[in-house]
Amino acid sequence: MTPAPSRLAPLRRPPVWVATVVAVAVAAWVLFLADGTPAGAAVDDPGRFLVTVLDGITFAGLLFVAASGFTLIFGLMRTVNMAHGSLFLLAAYVAIRVQEAMVGRSRNLDPADVGVLDWLVPLLAGAGVAAVLGLLIQQVFLQWNEGQEMRQTLLTLAITVVLADQMLREFGGLAQRMVWPGGVTHFFSVLGERYAVTRIFMLAIAVLVGVLLWLWLNRTSVGMVIRAGVDDRQMVRGLGINIRRVFALTFLVGSFLAGVGGVLGASFAGAAPGTDGNWLLNALVVVIIGGLGSLKGAAAGSLLYGTVVAFSPAYLPAQYSYYAIIMTFGLLALVLAVRPNGLFGRPA
């Protein structure tokens, strides 16, 4: 970002101080002072505190899966794929249809009837459809205008509008739900509170995705090319590597990740028109906090945002719990004030 004019320089530090003070104040509030909130102060009710922490971390897992594909695509190609949320929702719908076909019933699916395969195959089918559609979008609309960021963004926005409308026609306006496999729909108890195994399962899948992605980027030759491309596309091209093919592969993987996120999200909270916009928002918030193009940033952004989403309804005074959404904005403002490009972002 721009170096500020000299008379602004002394003002540079206050955001850091403000951020520190806010962080300390929030911690003190949650730990000792939060009487009269739905959860109560953490020292009085450690069980609720632990559950809220778990809620935050497991939701962060889902956020990471949804945002990692977005940030991967941006990091390499500088393309902001506004259709990411649409791919997310499409995968969810397709997976729900496949699951219904596999179990053989379309309504009132009982988790006990759903085996692991009845969940895993729809997951792969949904994510696969999203991956192919993403690749198609890239090949038809984005490949030939590489480097024109704003044009590409507007193209994907238009695709979002069309896809949302067509999905409404095809899948209807009612909320639908993917059913977790029966094997994980249990509860276990932590400090006297019941907690759903499905959320831990979701977190496990997210961690698996993260580890695989890290291995792919850091331990394979393709990953090496992608990392090199993030740093300097022209040089990679100059070395005789067919970067077009790498772009296509990255878009395929990024869209696949959006699809995996979509199926997880549909199992976690259901799928309906509007889910696409919400998850585009979630992915945007995560990457704006974490820094665009950085996998580390996506993980850090997911954790921060997931924590805020889990804590604000539980630890705001009960009559103000409607204001939880403003906390998200507060987090964004705070991070951007300290680091305009996000925690791990680099100047554009």
Binding site: M1, T2, R78, V80, E149, M150, T153, I288, L292, L336, P340, N341, A348
Partner: peptide, 8 residues
């Protein structure tokens, strides 16, 4: 302090 795509 953000521009371009970030601003969008």
């Amino acid at each position: 302090r953000t521009t371009g795509i970030y601003f969008l």
